[in-house]
């Protein structure tokens, strides 16, 4: 790393993102809070420290792309895009209301910065690989980041895409696994065990790094890596991160806080 990472600045953005997530889901009483809080630092690291883009030119072919394959974590994406200036924060107030542009899974072009429609697991990596081929052929230097959940790895299409990515040496693709260890009905390991995960990716021909998904000094260098092979960053995260009573509770996969819980959450995130 050529320059030190200003973790304090990232932490401020991440806290803002988490506050927006809690606010949106508290008001709307809909969708996935635990997995939005777990991915908040990953998205903050990417949008504030890694991705190359110009919010004023969202269609620039040279832009780095982020595909939110775990589309159910969309509240985190909306909050991060608002924090990064893609659209006004007031837009978030419409979340969960009739006629809003903000669905509770990602819809392409519904808002600036939403590249693809995702909400069904296992679509994102193949989309990213197609974009990576196009970028490589164009020689424009664009990089593709695909953010996946760990439960999502149960989808077979992910593994089809992994085979293709390594066979064609698509070094401009980075898959990020938000490994919060939980899915809808419980812990991922008790539902369908996926460990040893890094070994599986390496066996499929990808570089794999395991990092603390809440530590910017680990996330940013891992995302900035360049090599000859595609890479997976397994980000170990805590579901519900930042709100004590939600942390590591699968019940908060997609529950919404009541008035009292909301107050506590916002105090903890102040």
């Amino acid at each position: 790393m050529s320059e030190a990472i200003d973790t304090a600045a990232f932490a401020v953005h991440a806290k803002n993102v988490r506050r927006m997530i809690v606010e949106m889901i508290y008001r709307a009483k809909c969708s996935h809070i635990g997995c939005s809080l777990s991915v908040a630092d990953i998205l903050t690291a990417l949008y504030f420290g890694v991705l190359r883009f110009d919010p004023a030119h969202p269609d620039d072919p040279k832009r780095d792309r982020l595909i939110m394959s775990k589309g159910h974590g969309v509240a985190a994406l909306y909050a991060t895009l608002a924090e990064r200036g893609f659209f006004a924060r007031e837009e978030l107030d419409s979340y969960g209301t009739d006629g809003t542009r903000l669905a509770s899974h990602v819809v392409r072009n519904a808002l600036p910065g939403t590249e693809t429609s995702n909400g069904s697991g296992g679509h994102g990596l193949s989309l990213g690989i197609g974009m990576a081929i196009a970028a490589r052929n164009a020689g424009n230097g664009a990089r593709i980041f695909v953010v996946s959940g760990d439960g999502e790895l149960e989808e077979g299409s992910v593994w089809e895409a992994l085979l293709f990515g390594s066979h064609h040496g698509l070094a401009n693709v980075t898959m990020v696994v938000d490994q919060n260890g939980m899915q809808s009905e419980g812990s991922t390991e008790t539902i369908i065990g996926i460990e040893p995960l890094a070994d599986k990716f390496r066996a499929f021909g990808w570089d794999a790094a395991v990092v603390d998904g809440h530590d910017f000094t680990q996330l940013i260098p891992a995302f900035s890596h360049s090599g000859s092979r595609p890479r997976v960053v397994i980000a170990k995260t805590t579901k519900g991160k930042g709100v004590s009573y939600m942390e590591n509770k699968w019940q908060w996969h997609n529950s919404s806080p009541n008035d009292e819980q909301y107050k506590i959450a916002m105090e903890e995130l102040s």
């Binding site: 296992g122 197609g130 974009m131 196009a134 299409s157």
Partner: peptide, 21 residues
């Protein structure tokens, strides 16, 4: 590209290419 027998992946890749023009 011959992507082998991976139809879900094929359609996703095709869409990703097309999204890039």
């Amino acid at each position: 590209f011959n992507a082998g027998m991976s139809e879900q992946n094929i359609i996703g890749i095709a869409a990703g290419l097309a999204l890039s023009g």
